[in-house]
Design a protein around this nucleic acid. Sequence first.
DNA 1: TATACGTTTCTTGTATACAATATCATTGAC
DNA 2: GTCAATGATATTGTATACAAGAAACGTATA
Lengths: 219, 219
Amino acid sequence: MESSRSDQIASLLEEQILTGRFAPGARLDEVSLAEEHQVSRTPIREALQRLLLSGLVEHAPRRGVFVRQASAIEIMEMFEVMAELEAACGRLAAMRSSEEAVERLRRVNAGCREALKNGDADAYYEENGAFHHFIYAQSGNRFLENEAARLHRRLKPYRRMQLHLRGRMQQSMDEHDGIVDAIAAGKAGAAAELLRSHVGVQGEKFHHLLQQLRLEKTG
Amino acid sequence: MESSRSDQIASLLEEQILTGRFAPGARLDEVSLAEEHQVSRTPIREALQRLLLSGLVEHAPRRGVFVRQASAIEIMEMFEVMAELEAACGRLAAMRSSEEAVERLRRVNAGCREALKNGDADAYYEENGAFHHFIYAQSGNRFLENEAARLHRRLKPYRRMQLHLRGRMQQSMDEHDGIVDAIAAGKAGAAAELLRSHVGVQGEKFHHLLQQLRLEKTG
DNA sequence: TATACGTTTCTTGTATACAATATCATTGAC
DNA sequence: GTCAATGATATTGTATACAAGAAACGTATA
């Protein structure tokens, strides 16, 4: 798996787009990429197709492929869907988690608390990701787990931005505790609701952040 | 859009797989397909890549691509996610639908009732699809609308099977009425819950159907 | 007769060559 | 001086050629 050259290049390009190596709106030239990676255009085209399907780039026929410029509206929409998917995971996790699973969830959450205590935003980012992925897995639904992880990954660059907002880490942590308790108690509805607002607030924070950026730009 | 040969072939192959022209587990040979469609292997490969990403086929490295054999568990999982997505759409639609939108929803639902009255399963299938897509759109979230439509399409062959179950159409119709009323009344929670069980029951019916088929096979 | 090894053939993965179309620039006319 | 049209150029889309690896078959040996 992942052995072919085009697969490797696809993963690499995806990473480069998500980390900003290619800015939104930038054109991905087949021949330049081919030269850069020392391959022919064929593997490059296959890699680009993969990115196309994942929605990271868009394709103008006979024009080329460009890094997708997700509008603020679109990003808010994605956060809204993320909130719903997480709510679904939480709901199912509350109904299906075993005692051991809850215990492990508490341990993962403890990792978040540790990072918060150290004021380490990067560590918190990592631990937070583990926390959410664990809940996806505990939904007991592999398909749901994959879909949630896929969108989570897609939102990566936008989620990272907001961790540096003042007080966000502490607030996030408080919400985590409530979520863990709800799942532990098997309260499906509560778990769903808490996760929905937990993620939903990220969307709103992002909106807030965007406005700030816009104000700084114009002001 | 959809102008290139590979795009056309991708759509065609997708249709053919969903309608059973290619059975699950069947191998999709590049050269045969190339001959069949009078093109070279290149467009075929690009089309197959597209199917790969949508999960319809799987790819064994250096072995070829095969029509994906979705297990019963996987299908149930997909129905579970579909139920959650539909619930989300309904929740948002209840909060965001205008009076005119509700009126149009009632008209689409009337189309379902008409088909039911005529006992026309195929027509009901079509009208039912329109009903659900309308709710997706009324979520006011384009991204959610697309995701829901995508999964809806993926589940197409399995949904079609169960319409012929005795009494399913009437039951479906009754549920539709409740959903419309909830959305019209702006009862977000109720709309979500009704849609969740409406789709969830499809998953269970499918499970039922599968068991029946298995019994017929062995008995 | 069964198993193991080698060879052959088929298939994928990649490279290159060719064709068609869109874009850009230059030139000419108004 | 500006706008339009036509040709040059570049880039995508498709075809074909080539290489590497896997599967299948046959043969030889135990």
